[in-house]
Write a protein that binds this DNA or RNA. Structure first.
Length: 581
RNA sequence: GCACCCAUAGCUCAGCUGGAUAGAGUGUCGCCCUCCGAAGGCGAAGGUCGAAGGUUCGAAUCCUUCUGGGUGCGCCA
């Protein structure tokens, strides 16, 4: 139930009635007519731009339209006041019963309040993390993981059939490096002193892999040339790394539906098939690329390569799919992978990349556009850097100094809930400061705490009510006489609750889960503010001594806030706190 | 050189398919605990929304140019 859509429907109805009465020309497009919360609450509860949007096509003055429309709307019982303001805005004040009904709807729907049918019957694929299986996840991956996961939950909440997917880059040279590094650890387990040359991974996390290799293979590979052990150890190590990554993700509360292996594309004709699809569209050719202007690579020489004509689909230059030695570039399996997603009948694709992969956005979009004949939209969300701080001091990451911060370090120190919420307190494409001390601070400038505290406060009130012998289970609250919520203060809280379904749709439409976090902060603020008003005006307190009926109505309001906070935190993957101890 | 992202209060950031007098937090200054959790609340001060043009009834938002920052740019994924 979205009150804003409901009132918008009412406005459209009134406009149509005006047309029927000849007060407005036929054939107007109402799609730009919006009903929104006004910037300033003094203007009313909702405002519509209908008169201004329609003035030009209707060849009428905005105020003339607005005056008639205001009269029509005022006839409806739901509208208590409709007045024209400014150049032609129409401000509406709604009957209190509408806000009371919002509370009722929230209590009735519980966690499902605000769910939308926006994405009904549509399948969307969200690909995120997709880190190389060569080591544990670090902080950068953490942000991508949290963002992608919250986005997936958000899309689920607005009705999409969501698939959470991880693309395992297990087909390139980096897994060979992993295998060689693991082999060194294996030799180490056999008592050899090993050195890690440039281009291998010296990380401690491979020691365990070395141990397991020894347990599995004994001394079978000792002293053997690479061709004997590379393939087996590569598979073994890759699997071990994926186990590690899966465990890391789980610690953060992220669970994927699909792990898609790049390797599975090789030797099966799937890459060839995807490229053939492009070739059939005339988008593959042999050619020579121009060198990038301005920065000239030292070793540049013109080379003929197999190219994808991505410029036909919005890219700046055509992209190579084959290296000069005839083997695939990394882009080729990426094309095949996205082709696979297209053929799995998704209505929309979303890729979450780190900002350092921003250069691949255009070519990936071009590929999907070409492969789906423009039918499947691909949205690519980039997550910016996370800057770490400790006690307000920048915290430099260095592998050599051993201060390399992994996802596990973060989760172990501050917990998954705090990690997730903080990572979502910035827009995905804005850099994020993450201060290990600040995020654990229990104060107002820590949004995690502030929102959790609001939820805990409601829980506390409910506990108090129970202790006082007042029945406050959800069905009792639902049956309470909510018309008792008639003060301005209470209606204001209800108004904020009423924004939730609309906010969810906006966030879902823009693929921006951070909006949920910001809204929850505002809602928490309303709750805290209202709570405080009870100090002065006891009639606003949730718990009304000696009056169970009044208490139940007021606690109903509090409970509605808690339900929305809980649902919102649920989307972000954060557990609501029952108490702050 | 080109492409993408960013530029909003002293600081960190929101800002809805373009809407009214641009909002939070923090910092500064002031106020509020015999009473549902003060881990909180209320108020004051603080802005030519990087600059200049353009589109529009209306621009922080869309377009162009410029300035300043970040990222990336053919046999690395």
């Amino acid at each position: 139930m979205n009150l804003f859509s409901e009132i918008r429907a009412l406005v459209i109805e009134a406009l149509e009635a005006m047309q029927a009465e000849g007060k407005l020309p036929e054939g107007l497009d109402f799609k730009n007519v919006a009903v929104e919360p006004p910037r300033d609450a003094l203007h009313g509860d909702m405002a519509t731009n209908a008169a201004m949007v329609l003035a030009k096509p209707a060849k009428m003055k905005p105020r003339d339209i607005a005056d008639v429309l205001a009269g029509k709307l005022a006839e409806d019982a739901r509208v208590s006041v409709a007045e024209v303001a400014g150049p032609g805005f129409l401000n509406l004040r709604l009957a209190p019963v509408l806000w009371q009904n919002v509370i009722k709807a929230a209590l009735e729907a519980g966690q499902d309040f605000g769910r939308s049918a926006m994405g009904a019957d549509k399948k969307v694929n969200v690909e995120y993390v997709s880190a190389n299986p060569t080591g544990p996840l670090h902080v950068g991956h953490t942000r991508g993981a949290v963002f992608g996961d919250a986005l997936a939950s958000l899309l689920d909440f607005v009705g999409y059939d969501v698939t959470r997917e991880y693309y395992i880059n297990d087909g390139g040279a980096q897994v060979d490096v992993l295998a060689r590094s693991s082999y060194l650890r294996y030799l180490e387990q056999h008592g050899e002193t090993v050195e890690f040359p440039e281009g291998t991974y010296p990380g401690d996390y491979l020691i365990e892999v070395g141990e397991k290799l020894k347990a599995q293979y004994g001394d079978k590979f000792v002293g053997q040339p690479e061709e004997v052990w590379l393939k087996e150890i590569r598979e073994f190590a890759t699997e071990a790394m994926m186990d590690l990554i899966r465990a890391d993700l789980k610690a953060l509360g992220v669970e994927m539906d699909v792990f898609f292996s790049e390797k599975s594309l090789y030797g099966t004709g799937r890459i060839e098939g995807a490229l053939e699809t492009l070739e059939n569209k005339g988008l593959i050719y042999e050619g020579v690329l121009e060198p990038p202007k301005g920065k000239k690579p030292e070793d540049w020489e013109p080379r003929e390569q197999t190219l994808f004509r991505s410029t036909d689909h919005g890219d700046d230059v055509d992209r190579p799919v084959k290296k000069s030695d005839g083997s695939w570039t990394y882009f080729a399996p990426d094309i095949a992978y996205h082709y696979d997603k297209v053929t799995r009948d998704f209505d929309a694709l979303i890729d979450v990349f780190g900002a350092d992969h921003g250069g691949y956005v255009k070519r990936m979009k071009a590929a999907v556009s070409a492969l789906s004949d423009g039918q499947v939209p691909l949205d690519i969300k980039l997550t910016q850097l996370v800057k770490l701080f400790k006690n307000g001091e920048p915290f430099k990451m260095s592998k050599r100094a051993g201060t390399f911060v992994t996802l596990r370090d973060v989760v172990d120190q501050v917990g998954p809930d705090v990690t997730r919420f903080v990572m979502l307190t910035r827009k995905n494409d804005a850099p994020l400061d993450f201060d290990f001390d600040k995020v654990l601070e229990q104060s107002k400038d820590n949004p995690v705490f502030y929102v959790q505290y609001a939820h805990a406060r409601v829980c506390s009130v409910i506990r108090k009510a129970e202790a006082a012998g007042i029945s406050v289970d959800d069905s009792t609250l639902l049956a309470a006489d909510l018309t008792k919520l008639d003060s301005d203060a209470e209606i204001n809280v209800a108004k904020k609750v009423a924004e939730w379904p609309r906010l969810v749709e906006i966030a879902g439409r823009t693929n921006e889960p951070h909006r949920i976090a910001f809204y929850l902060y505002e809602l928490a603020s309303e709750l805290h503010s209202h709570y405080k008003k009870g100090d002065e005006d006891h009639s606003l307190r949730f718990l009304q001594e000696g009056d169970a009926a009044a208490s139940q109505a007021k606690i109903g309001l509090a409970r509605a806030v808690a339900v929305v906070i809980s649902a919102g935190l649920g989307i972000l993957g954060v557990t609501p706190a029952q108490e702050m101890r």
